[in-house]
């Protein structure tokens, strides 16, 4: 199986889906001539031309809405945001148009559109450029939200997102674009709504998604080496719909859980996961569920402060030790 970067896996998914369906087009800032702010769209303008790889002005609200309008008449737009921080300007179109048109039209207007781009903090970009938006987006009925952690999942989930008849949010990671992994060639789709056990274990479940999968996997390694603890890493992959069965099955086995995310703690994804666990696996729990999140502050610029603010393997290990009563 070929090894690809996360960036190239996304590129492959876009290219294959654009070859497969003439109604799929890509629109966003710098996606064409510049080849993508993060080079996800490299080569696509040359292959598909300017009608299908559309450079836009810096006008997130406008081009997101143009995408939704195009979806209303049967196209399958892929709208790229340079980052999800800028997509906040387009929230009206995502929340009030894309997510609601099917319902408020009594089922007449499905909106098959993908909104994608990097989400969460990179390195020292400061408060406005370092935010994780998944809890905001996952709150909205009518949207689906996915957050792939590996190149294979990036390809498979983006392909599923493009084929889905609903608005799908694809949260990528700036720090993930260069990561490498094996990616199946050609037709490879990952169904939306299925979590994936990235490492099997017996003693504690680490629930994570996107960049925090790497954090959790490192923590699991440390736990195995330093404590002899066998941690199971469950990658949610989809945040809406959430794979409640996978979460429950793992916790039923390990009886303990730590939820890791890049977002802030208040009303975060972890809060939703904890709700599932207390509801569906209450009798299996041997300890309260703990969460590891970004610190409840705007992201600082200073390198040391930023490190303190982010979830880390050490923080996950510490939380796991507490739910295992090792402290």
């Amino acid at each position: 199986m070929p090894t690809l970067t996360y960036r190239d896996a996304l590129n492959q998914a876009l290219r294959e889906e654009m070859q497969r369906d003439a109604n799929v087009f890509l629109m966003g800032e710098e996606v064409g001539v510049y080849q993508g702010a993060y080079k996800v769209s490299r080569g696509l303008l040359e292959e598909f031309g300017p009608m299908r790889v559309v450079d836009t002005p810096i006008a997130e609200l406008g081009f997101a809405g143009i995408g939704v309008g195009a979806a209303m008449v049967g196209l399958r737009p892929v709208i790229e945001f340079m980052t999800w921080n800028f997509a906040v300007l387009a929230l009206d179109q995502i929340v009030n148009s894309a997510a609601k048109l099917l319902y408020e039209s009594g089922g007449q207007l499905p909106i098959p559109i993908v909104f994608r781009g990097p989400n969460g903090a990179a390195l020292q970009l400061g408060a406005q450029h370092s935010q994780a938006w998944e809890s905001w987006l996952s709150h909205i009925p009518g949207l689906k939200v996915v957050a792939p952690a590996t190149p294979a999942d990036a390809k498979g989930l983006l392909k599923s997102a493009i084929r889905d008849n609903n608005p799908v949010i694809v949260l990528e990671g700036e720090m993930l674009y260069n990561t490498k992994g094996e990616v199946p060639e050609g037709e490879y789709v990952v169904p939306i709504g299925r979590a994936d056990v990235k490492r099997a274990g017996r003693d504690v479940t680490l629930i994570c998604h996107s960049k925090t999968v790497t954090v959790a996997l490192k923590a699991a390694e440390q736990l195995a080496e330093q404590e002899g603890v066998s941690a199971e890493v469950v990658d949610l992959r989809s945040l809406r719909p959430l794979d409640e069965a996978a979460i429950t099955a793992s916790v039923a086995k390990t009886n303990r859980a730590v939820v890791v995310e890049e977002g802030w703690p208040h009303c975060g994804i972890g809060a939703q996961v904890v709700d599932v666990i207390q509801r569906e696996a209450f009798d299996h729990l041997d300890a309260p569920v703990l969460r590891v999140t970004q610190a409840d502050v705007p992201m600082p610029y200073n390198r040391q402060l930023e490190r303190l603010a982010k979830p880390s393997p050490d923080k996950v290990v510490a939380a796991a030790r507490r739910v295992l009563y090792l402290d």
Binding site: L61, G62, F63, A64, G65, I66, G67, V68, G69, A70, A71, M72, V73, G74, L75, Q93, S97
Partner: peptide, 11 residues
């Protein structure tokens, strides 16, 4: 909905 109108035109 003004961007939606343009999007329909784009389609």
């Amino acid at each position: 909905h003004i961007p939606l109108g343009a999007g329909i035109g784009f389609g």
